[in-house]
Amino acid sequence: MASNSHFTVALHILSRIYLDKDKNQPFVSSALIARSVNSHAVFIRRILGALNRAGLVSVRRGGVNGGWSLAKSADLMTLLDVYEAVEEKPLKELHYSEPNYTCPIGRGIQPALTQYYESAEAAFRKELSKTTLTTLVQDTLSHAGP
């Protein structure tokens, strides 16, 4: 089963917009972003829509001068902000279908796992809250080489 990549793609999108902002290009087209992500522009626009609803990006409609820009300072935007904007489900979910409650494992596995999953999710969120988009872009560029 494939893992949801919306969070990673959203971070890629925001990083690309941030990078172009530094090049004095205030609005970045979804087509340019799609080329950077190497994904379909419709998928990119879906992620951008979620980021827009969360107040992280803004859009300016219109041909050549249109596109997307950051609506919040990259120094104030945490990875947690982005995660909460695009992820609809918890980090880990329980069974797709109900387990067999006549079995002792089936009866107890979900309550047992819930405590671990909630603890892991809290630690994950805490870690994401420590990093800003600015830091992510700096780290990304340091790994990109010349």
Rank of each mutant, 00 (worst) to 15 (best):
M1R: 05
H6E: 13
A10W: 05
L11D: 00
H12P: 01
I13F: 01
L14Q: 01
S15E: 00
L19S: 05
D20A: 05
K21V: 01
D22F: 04
D22A: 05
D22E: 14
Q25L: 02
V28D: 02
V28N: 05
S29C: 03
A31I: 11
A31P: 02
A34D: 00
S36H: 13
S39H: 14
H40V: 08
A41G: 06
I44N: 03
I44D: 07
R45E: 13
R45D: 15
R46F: 11
R46Y: 12
L48R: 04
G49T: 11
L51F: 07
G55R: 03
V57L: 06
S58P: 00
R60V: 15
R60Y: 11
G62M: 09
G62I: 10
G63K: 09
G63E: 06
G66L: 07
G66W: 09
G67H: 13
G67S: 13
K72V: 15
K72M: 15
K72L: 11
S73C: 08
D75S: 13
M77E: 01
T78K: 06
Y83R: 11
Y83M: 08
Y83I: 10
E84M: 09
E84H: 03
A85D: 09
V86F: 07
V86M: 10
E87I: 05
P90K: 08
L91W: 03
K92P: 00
E93W: 01
E93P: 00
L94A: 10
H95Q: 03
S97T: 04
S97I: 06
S97L: 13
E98N: 08
N100C: 14
Y101E: 00
Y101N: 01
Y101G: 00
Y101V: 02
T102K: 04
C103M: 07
P104T: 10
G106E: 04
R107T: 13
P111V: 06
A112I: 11
A112T: 14
T114E: 15
Y117C: 03
A120S: 14
A120D: 15
A123S: 12
A123L: 14
F124Q: 04
K126W: 04
K126M: 07
S129C: 02
S129H: 03
T131R: 14
T132V: 07
L133D: 01
T134G: 00
V137F: 06
Q138G: 00
D139H: 15
D139S: 13
T140K: 15
T140R: 15
S142Y: 06
S142I: 02
H143A: 12
H143R: 12
A144T: 06
A144G: 00
A144R: 03
P146N: 10
